[in-house]
Nucleic acid binder design. Structure first.
Lengths: 186, 186
DNA sequence: GCCGCACCTGAGAATGATTCCTAAATAAGC
DNA sequence: GCTTATTTAGGAATCATTCTCAGGTGCGGC
Protein backbone atom coordinates (compact mmCIF):
# COMPACT_ATOMS: atom_id res chain seq x y z
CA UNK A 1 0.00 0.00 0.00
CA UNK A 2 2.81 2.33 0.86
CA UNK A 3 4.70 1.24 -2.23
CA UNK A 4 1.65 1.61 -4.45
CA UNK A 5 0.93 5.09 -3.16
CA UNK A 6 4.54 6.05 -3.74
CA UNK A 7 4.49 4.84 -7.34
CA UNK A 8 1.26 6.71 -7.95
CA UNK A 9 2.66 9.89 -6.47
CA UNK A 10 5.80 9.54 -8.61
CA UNK A 11 3.72 9.13 -11.78
CA UNK A 12 1.68 12.19 -10.97
CA UNK A 13 4.84 14.15 -10.36
CA UNK A 14 6.22 13.16 -13.77
CA UNK A 15 2.96 14.04 -15.47
CA UNK A 16 2.92 17.40 -13.80
CA UNK A 17 6.51 17.95 -14.75
CA UNK A 18 5.89 17.25 -18.43
CA UNK A 19 2.79 19.43 -18.42
CA UNK A 20 4.59 22.39 -16.88
CA UNK A 21 7.52 22.03 -19.29
CA UNK A 22 5.18 22.01 -22.27
CA UNK A 23 3.27 24.98 -20.92
CA UNK A 24 6.49 26.95 -20.63
CA UNK A 25 7.89 25.83 -23.97
CA UNK A 26 10.79 23.96 -22.39
CA UNK A 27 12.18 20.68 -23.68
CA UNK A 28 11.61 17.60 -21.57
CA UNK A 29 15.09 16.14 -21.31
CA UNK A 30 16.04 12.99 -19.47
CA UNK A 31 18.41 14.93 -17.29
CA UNK A 32 15.76 17.42 -16.23
CA UNK A 33 13.34 14.70 -15.35
CA UNK A 34 15.97 12.77 -13.41
CA UNK A 35 16.96 15.82 -11.42
CA UNK A 36 13.38 16.65 -10.65
CA UNK A 37 12.72 13.09 -9.52
CA UNK A 38 15.79 13.16 -7.33
CA UNK A 39 14.44 16.18 -5.49
CA UNK A 40 10.94 14.72 -5.22
CA UNK A 41 12.20 11.42 -3.87
CA UNK A 42 14.47 12.93 -1.29
CA UNK A 43 13.10 13.78 2.11
CA UNK A 44 16.28 15.49 3.25
CA UNK A 45 16.39 18.87 1.52
CA UNK A 46 19.34 17.83 -0.65
CA UNK A 47 22.02 20.19 -1.86
CA UNK A 48 23.26 20.41 -5.44
CA UNK A 49 26.09 18.01 -4.72
CA UNK A 50 23.77 15.32 -3.35
CA UNK A 51 21.49 15.62 -6.33
CA UNK A 52 24.51 15.41 -8.60
CA UNK A 53 25.51 12.19 -6.85
CA UNK A 54 22.01 10.74 -7.02
CA UNK A 55 21.50 11.50 -10.70
CA UNK A 56 24.92 10.24 -11.66
CA UNK A 57 23.68 6.73 -10.99
CA UNK A 58 21.47 7.03 -14.05
CA UNK A 59 23.56 9.48 -16.08
CA UNK A 60 27.24 8.89 -15.35
CA UNK A 61 28.28 11.73 -17.61
CA UNK A 62 26.00 14.43 -16.22
CA UNK A 63 27.87 17.55 -15.22
CA UNK A 64 27.52 19.80 -12.21
CA UNK A 65 26.71 22.68 -14.49
CA UNK A 66 23.63 20.86 -15.69
CA UNK A 67 22.51 20.16 -12.16
CA UNK A 68 22.84 23.79 -11.09
CA UNK A 69 21.23 25.09 -14.26
CA UNK A 70 18.36 22.65 -14.03
CA UNK A 71 17.69 23.32 -10.37
CA UNK A 72 17.40 26.99 -11.19
CA UNK A 73 15.04 26.16 -14.03
CA UNK A 74 12.90 23.97 -11.78
CA UNK A 75 12.71 26.75 -9.22
CA UNK A 76 11.55 29.24 -11.81
CA UNK A 77 8.97 26.71 -12.97
CA UNK A 78 7.70 26.53 -9.41
CA UNK A 79 8.16 22.76 -9.19
CA UNK A 80 10.97 22.98 -6.70
CA UNK A 81 11.81 25.40 -3.93
CA UNK A 82 15.15 26.67 -2.80
CA UNK A 83 14.72 26.26 0.94
CA UNK A 84 17.42 28.80 1.63
CA UNK A 85 15.96 31.28 -0.80
CA UNK A 86 17.24 34.23 1.18
CA UNK A 87 20.70 32.71 1.06
CA UNK A 88 23.76 34.56 -0.11
CA UNK A 89 26.88 35.88 1.52
CA UNK A 90 27.02 36.12 5.31
CA UNK A 91 25.39 39.25 6.72
CA UNK A 92 25.85 40.70 10.19
CA UNK A 93 24.13 43.05 12.58
CA UNK A 94 24.65 44.31 16.10
CA UNK A 95 20.96 44.65 16.95
CA UNK A 96 20.51 42.45 19.93
CA UNK A 97 16.79 42.71 20.62
CA UNK A 98 14.84 39.88 19.00
CA UNK A 99 13.34 40.90 15.70
CA UNK A 100 12.55 39.64 12.22
CA UNK A 101 13.60 40.34 8.66
CA UNK A 102 12.30 41.31 5.28
CA UNK A 103 14.65 40.05 2.57
CA UNK A 104 14.53 41.63 -0.87
CA UNK A 105 15.14 39.03 -3.57
CA UNK A 106 15.98 41.78 -6.03
CA UNK A 107 18.77 43.70 -4.35
CA UNK A 108 19.39 41.41 -1.36
CA UNK A 109 18.59 44.21 1.03
CA UNK A 110 17.62 43.06 4.50
CA UNK A 111 15.20 45.18 6.48
CA UNK A 112 14.67 44.78 10.20
CA UNK A 113 11.15 44.26 11.36
CA UNK A 114 10.40 44.83 15.00
CA UNK A 115 7.05 43.38 15.87
CA UNK A 116 6.69 41.89 19.33
CA UNK A 117 3.35 40.36 18.38
CA UNK A 118 5.21 38.06 15.97
CA UNK A 119 7.47 36.85 18.74
CA UNK A 120 4.61 36.18 21.02
CA UNK A 121 2.79 34.24 18.39
CA UNK A 122 5.75 32.15 17.29
CA UNK A 123 6.68 31.39 20.86
CA UNK A 124 3.21 30.09 21.47
CA UNK A 125 3.36 27.78 18.44
CA UNK A 126 6.98 26.76 18.97
CA UNK A 127 7.39 23.00 18.65
CA UNK A 128 9.41 22.79 21.84
CA UNK A 129 6.41 24.10 23.72
CA UNK A 130 4.24 21.33 22.42
CA UNK A 131 2.66 23.33 19.64
CA UNK A 132 0.31 21.09 17.71
CA UNK A 133 1.85 19.61 14.62
CA UNK A 134 2.26 16.40 12.69
CA UNK A 135 -1.29 16.67 11.48
CA UNK A 136 -0.27 16.74 7.83
CA UNK A 137 0.85 13.17 7.42
CA UNK A 138 3.42 12.67 10.13
CA UNK A 139 6.32 14.05 8.14
CA UNK A 140 7.83 16.02 10.97
CA UNK A 141 9.36 13.14 12.96
CA UNK A 142 12.80 14.73 13.06
CA UNK A 143 11.32 17.56 15.11
CA UNK A 144 11.19 15.37 18.20
CA UNK A 145 13.97 16.21 20.60
CA UNK A 146 15.00 19.32 18.72
CA UNK A 147 16.41 22.00 21.00
CA UNK A 148 15.46 25.44 19.75
CA UNK A 149 17.98 28.16 20.47
CA UNK A 150 16.56 30.87 18.26
CA UNK A 151 14.07 31.66 15.55
CA UNK A 152 13.08 34.33 13.13
CA UNK A 153 10.21 35.02 10.83
CA UNK A 154 11.66 35.71 7.43
CA UNK A 155 9.57 37.49 4.84
CA UNK A 156 10.89 37.44 1.28
CA UNK A 157 9.77 39.61 -1.59
CA UNK A 158 10.69 42.86 -3.27
CA UNK A 159 11.47 46.22 -1.75
CA UNK A 160 9.94 49.43 -3.03
CA UNK A 161 12.91 50.25 -5.27
CA UNK A 162 13.06 46.82 -6.84
CA UNK A 163 9.33 46.80 -7.41
CA UNK A 164 9.46 49.97 -9.46
CA UNK A 165 12.55 48.72 -11.25
CA UNK A 166 10.71 45.52 -12.14
CA UNK A 167 7.64 47.42 -13.22
CA UNK A 168 9.77 49.61 -15.49
CA UNK A 169 11.51 46.59 -17.00
CA UNK A 170 8.13 44.91 -17.41
CA UNK A 171 7.28 46.64 -20.68
CA UNK A 172 10.57 46.00 -22.44
CA UNK A 173 11.18 42.60 -20.90
CA UNK A 174 12.15 39.39 -22.77
CA UNK A 175 15.09 38.82 -20.45
CA UNK A 176 15.84 38.70 -16.76
CA UNK A 177 18.57 41.05 -15.75
CA UNK A 178 21.63 40.02 -13.81
CA UNK A 179 20.42 41.61 -10.63
CA UNK A 180 17.38 39.40 -10.45
CA UNK A 181 19.34 36.25 -11.14
CA UNK A 182 21.03 35.98 -7.78
CA UNK A 183 17.72 36.06 -5.99
CA UNK A 184 15.80 32.85 -5.84
CA UNK A 185 12.28 33.18 -7.07
CA UNK A 186 9.65 32.52 -4.48
CA UNK B 1 20.57 65.79 19.96
CA UNK B 2 20.70 63.14 17.34
CA UNK B 3 24.44 63.47 17.11
CA UNK B 4 24.85 63.49 20.87
CA UNK B 5 22.72 60.40 21.28
CA UNK B 6 24.74 58.68 18.60
CA UNK B 7 28.03 59.49 20.29
CA UNK B 8 26.68 58.27 23.59
CA UNK B 9 25.46 55.05 22.08
CA UNK B 10 28.85 54.52 20.43
CA UNK B 11 30.68 55.02 23.72
CA UNK B 12 28.43 52.57 25.47
CA UNK B 13 28.99 50.06 22.72
CA UNK B 14 32.78 50.36 23.09
CA UNK B 15 32.53 50.01 26.85
CA UNK B 16 30.41 46.92 26.48
CA UNK B 17 32.85 45.53 23.95
CA UNK B 18 35.84 45.98 26.23
CA UNK B 19 33.96 44.52 29.16
CA UNK B 20 32.92 41.42 27.24
CA UNK B 21 36.44 40.92 25.89
CA UNK B 22 37.91 41.13 29.37
CA UNK B 23 35.29 38.76 30.73
CA UNK B 24 36.19 36.19 28.09
CA UNK B 25 39.91 36.69 28.40
CA UNK B 26 40.24 38.04 24.86
CA UNK B 27 42.62 40.82 23.87
CA UNK B 28 41.11 44.14 22.90
CA UNK B 29 42.84 44.85 19.61
CA UNK B 30 42.32 47.90 17.44
CA UNK B 31 41.16 45.72 14.59
CA UNK B 32 38.54 43.97 16.67
CA UNK B 33 37.19 47.21 17.97
CA UNK B 34 37.11 48.75 14.49
CA UNK B 35 35.29 45.77 13.05
CA UNK B 36 32.79 45.79 15.86
CA UNK B 37 32.19 49.51 15.41
CA UNK B 38 31.71 49.04 11.69
CA UNK B 39 28.91 46.56 12.35
CA UNK B 40 27.33 48.72 15.03
CA UNK B 41 27.41 51.83 12.87
CA UNK B 42 25.93 50.16 9.82
CA UNK B 43 22.22 49.97 9.50
CA UNK B 44 22.36 47.79 6.42
CA UNK B 45 23.29 44.30 7.59
CA UNK B 46 26.72 44.47 5.98
CA UNK B 47 28.56 41.50 4.56
CA UNK B 48 32.19 40.66 5.28
CA UNK B 49 33.34 42.49 2.17
CA UNK B 50 31.59 45.72 3.16
CA UNK B 51 33.06 45.58 6.63
CA UNK B 52 36.45 44.92 5.13
CA UNK B 53 36.03 48.04 2.98
CA UNK B 54 34.83 50.16 5.88
CA UNK B 55 37.62 49.13 8.24
CA UNK B 56 40.29 49.53 5.60
CA UNK B 57 39.83 53.28 5.86
CA UNK B 58 41.39 53.10 9.32
CA UNK B 59 43.62 50.06 8.83
CA UNK B 60 44.82 49.96 5.25
CA UNK B 61 46.70 46.72 5.82
CA UNK B 62 43.92 44.75 7.45
CA UNK B 63 43.31 41.44 5.76
CA UNK B 64 40.12 39.65 4.87
CA UNK B 65 41.16 36.77 7.06
CA UNK B 66 41.13 39.05 10.08
CA UNK B 67 37.68 40.33 9.19
CA UNK B 68 36.22 36.85 8.84
CA UNK B 69 37.96 35.60 11.96
CA UNK B 70 36.89 38.58 14.01
CA UNK B 71 33.29 38.43 12.88
CA UNK B 72 33.17 34.85 14.01
CA UNK B 73 34.66 35.85 17.33
CA UNK B 74 32.14 38.65 17.78
CA UNK B 75 29.33 36.25 17.04
CA UNK B 76 30.54 33.80 19.65
CA UNK B 77 30.81 36.68 22.11
CA UNK B 78 27.19 37.46 21.43
CA UNK B 79 27.93 41.05 20.43
CA UNK B 80 27.05 40.53 16.80
CA UNK B 81 24.60 38.26 15.03
CA UNK B 82 24.94 36.47 11.76
CA UNK B 83 21.60 37.35 10.23
CA UNK B 84 21.79 34.41 7.86
CA UNK B 85 22.76 32.00 10.57
CA UNK B 86 21.09 29.10 8.82
CA UNK B 87 23.05 29.89 5.70
CA UNK B 88 25.13 27.34 3.84
CA UNK B 89 24.96 25.64 0.49
CA UNK B 90 21.73 25.83 -1.48
CA UNK B 91 19.13 23.27 -0.41
CA UNK B 92 16.08 22.19 -2.36
CA UNK B 93 12.74 20.53 -1.81
CA UNK B 94 9.70 19.67 -3.86
CA UNK B 95 7.18 20.12 -1.05
CA UNK B 96 4.82 22.71 -2.35
CA UNK B 97 2.46 23.23 0.59
CA UNK B 98 3.51 26.15 2.79
CA UNK B 99 5.47 25.02 5.81
CA UNK B 100 8.33 26.00 8.07
CA UNK B 101 11.77 24.71 8.97
CA UNK B 102 13.90 23.60 11.87
CA UNK B 103 17.57 24.06 11.02
CA UNK B 104 20.18 22.15 12.98
CA UNK B 105 23.29 24.24 13.48
CA UNK B 106 25.28 21.12 14.28
CA UNK B 107 24.75 18.91 11.24
CA UNK B 108 22.89 21.37 8.98
CA UNK B 109 19.91 19.08 8.80
CA UNK B 110 16.68 20.79 7.84
CA UNK B 111 13.44 19.41 9.17
CA UNK B 112 10.05 20.35 7.78
CA UNK B 113 7.53 21.66 10.20
CA UNK B 114 3.93 21.67 9.12
CA UNK B 115 1.87 23.80 11.47
CA UNK B 116 -1.00 25.70 9.91
CA UNK B 117 -1.45 27.74 13.06
CA UNK B 118 1.92 29.37 12.39
CA UNK B 119 0.85 30.37 8.91
CA UNK B 120 -2.36 31.84 10.10
CA UNK B 121 -0.71 33.81 12.82
CA UNK B 122 2.13 35.10 10.68
CA UNK B 123 -0.25 36.10 7.95
CA UNK B 124 -2.19 38.17 10.41
CA UNK B 125 0.94 40.01 11.54
CA UNK B 126 2.39 40.40 8.05
CA UNK B 127 3.59 43.96 7.46
CA UNK B 128 1.83 44.22 4.13
CA UNK B 129 -1.44 43.60 5.93
CA UNK B 130 -0.90 46.61 8.12
CA UNK B 131 0.45 44.66 11.05
CA UNK B 132 1.44 47.09 13.79
CA UNK B 133 5.11 47.89 13.78
CA UNK B 134 7.58 50.76 13.96
CA UNK B 135 6.91 51.06 17.65
CA UNK B 136 10.51 50.34 18.59
CA UNK B 137 12.08 53.56 17.46
CA UNK B 138 11.04 53.89 13.84
CA UNK B 139 13.82 51.70 12.47
CA UNK B 140 11.70 49.81 10.03
CA UNK B 141 11.26 52.52 7.39
CA UNK B 142 12.44 50.30 4.54
CA UNK B 143 9.46 48.05 5.16
CA UNK B 144 7.14 50.54 3.51
CA UNK B 145 6.20 49.45 0.03
CA UNK B 146 7.70 46.00 0.45
CA UNK B 147 5.88 43.36 -1.56
CA UNK B 148 5.84 40.06 0.27
CA UNK B 149 5.90 36.98 -1.94
CA UNK B 150 6.62 34.40 0.70
CA UNK B 151 7.67 33.83 4.27
CA UNK B 152 8.79 31.15 6.61
CA UNK B 153 9.33 30.76 10.29
CA UNK B 154 12.82 29.44 10.77
CA UNK B 155 13.76 27.78 14.04
CA UNK B 156 17.44 27.17 14.62
CA UNK B 157 18.99 24.94 17.22
CA UNK B 158 20.23 21.38 17.61
CA UNK B 159 18.61 18.15 16.57
CA UNK B 160 18.39 15.16 18.86
CA UNK B 161 21.53 13.53 17.50
CA UNK B 162 23.62 16.68 17.76
CA UNK B 163 22.38 17.33 21.26
CA UNK B 164 23.61 14.00 22.52
CA UNK B 165 26.83 14.42 20.60
CA UNK B 166 27.34 17.79 22.27
CA UNK B 167 26.47 16.41 25.66
CA UNK B 168 29.00 13.63 25.19
CA UNK B 169 31.68 16.09 24.10
CA UNK B 170 30.75 18.34 26.99
CA UNK B 171 32.91 16.57 29.58
CA UNK B 172 36.07 16.41 27.49
CA UNK B 173 35.64 19.81 25.88
CA UNK B 174 38.27 22.61 25.70
CA UNK B 175 37.78 22.92 21.95
CA UNK B 176 34.98 23.27 19.45
CA UNK B 177 35.01 20.54 16.89
CA UNK B 178 34.98 21.15 13.17
CA UNK B 179 31.38 20.14 12.83
CA UNK B 180 30.19 22.88 15.11
CA UNK B 181 32.26 25.54 13.41
CA UNK B 182 30.17 25.83 10.29
CA UNK B 183 27.08 26.58 12.31
CA UNK B 184 26.64 30.11 13.56
CA UNK B 185 26.07 30.28 17.25
CA UNK B 186 22.71 31.62 18.21
C1' DG C 1 58.73 51.74 31.47
C1' DC C 2 60.51 46.95 30.08
C1' DC C 3 59.92 41.62 29.38
C1' DG C 4 57.87 37.39 28.08
C1' DC C 5 54.60 34.90 25.97
C1' DA C 6 50.13 33.60 24.64
C1' DC C 7 47.12 35.43 21.61
C1' DC C 8 46.51 38.03 17.11
C1' DT C 9 47.20 39.73 12.60
C1' DG C 10 48.72 39.97 7.53
C1' DA C 11 49.49 37.85 3.33
C1' DG C 12 48.46 34.75 0.39
C1' DA C 13 47.53 29.95 -0.78
C1' DA C 14 43.82 26.50 -0.61
C1' DT C 15 39.15 25.03 -0.71
C1' DG C 16 34.41 24.58 -1.97
C1' DA C 17 30.29 26.16 -4.09
C1' DT C 18 28.60 28.13 -8.00
C1' DT C 19 28.68 30.29 -12.59
C1' DC C 20 30.35 30.84 -17.20
C1' DC C 21 31.86 29.36 -21.85
C1' DT C 22 31.79 26.66 -26.02
C1' DA C 23 31.50 22.82 -28.98
C1' DA C 24 28.82 18.78 -29.49
C1' DA C 25 24.32 16.43 -28.71
C1' DT C 26 19.38 16.25 -28.68
C1' DA C 27 14.21 17.34 -28.42
C1' DA C 28 10.49 18.86 -31.09
C1' DG C 29 8.06 20.52 -35.05
C1' DC C 30 7.63 19.54 -39.96
C1' DG D 1 14.36 11.72 -41.53
C1' DC D 2 15.72 16.85 -41.53
C1' DT D 3 16.28 21.39 -39.39
C1' DT D 4 16.87 24.29 -35.83
C1' DA D 5 16.60 26.14 -31.40
C1' DT D 6 17.48 24.38 -27.02
C1' DT D 7 20.24 21.83 -23.93
C1' DT D 8 24.19 19.30 -22.24
C1' DA D 9 29.20 17.94 -20.99
C1' DG D 10 33.38 19.35 -19.66
C1' DG D 11 36.22 22.28 -17.84
C1' DA D 12 37.87 26.90 -16.84
C1' DA D 13 36.74 30.94 -14.12
C1' DT D 14 34.88 33.34 -10.20
C1' DC D 15 33.61 34.32 -5.60
C1' DA D 16 33.16 33.74 -0.67
C1' DT D 17 35.35 31.73 2.87
C1' DT D 18 38.88 29.12 5.47
C1' DC D 19 43.53 27.76 6.43
C1' DT D 20 48.48 28.27 7.33
C1' DC D 21 52.28 30.23 9.25
C1' DA D 22 55.67 33.73 10.14
C1' DG D 23 55.87 37.96 12.34
C1' DG D 24 53.55 41.41 15.53
C1' DT D 25 51.15 43.00 19.72
C1' DG D 26 48.26 43.33 24.05
C1' DC D 27 48.77 42.82 28.71
C1' DG D 28 50.04 40.96 33.29
C1' DG D 29 54.17 40.91 36.07
C1' DC D 30 58.39 43.21 37.46
Amino acid sequence: MDRKAGAERARQAVDGFVRVCRAKGLSVTHQRLAIYEAVVQSRTHPGAEEIFGAVRGRFPTISRGTVYRTLETLCSMGLVTDVSRARGTARFEAVLEPHHHLVCLGCRRIIDLHDPSLDEVVRRASPSRGGRRGRSGGEDEGAAGFEITGYQVQFVGYCKDCRSRRAAAGSGNAHRNREERHGTRA
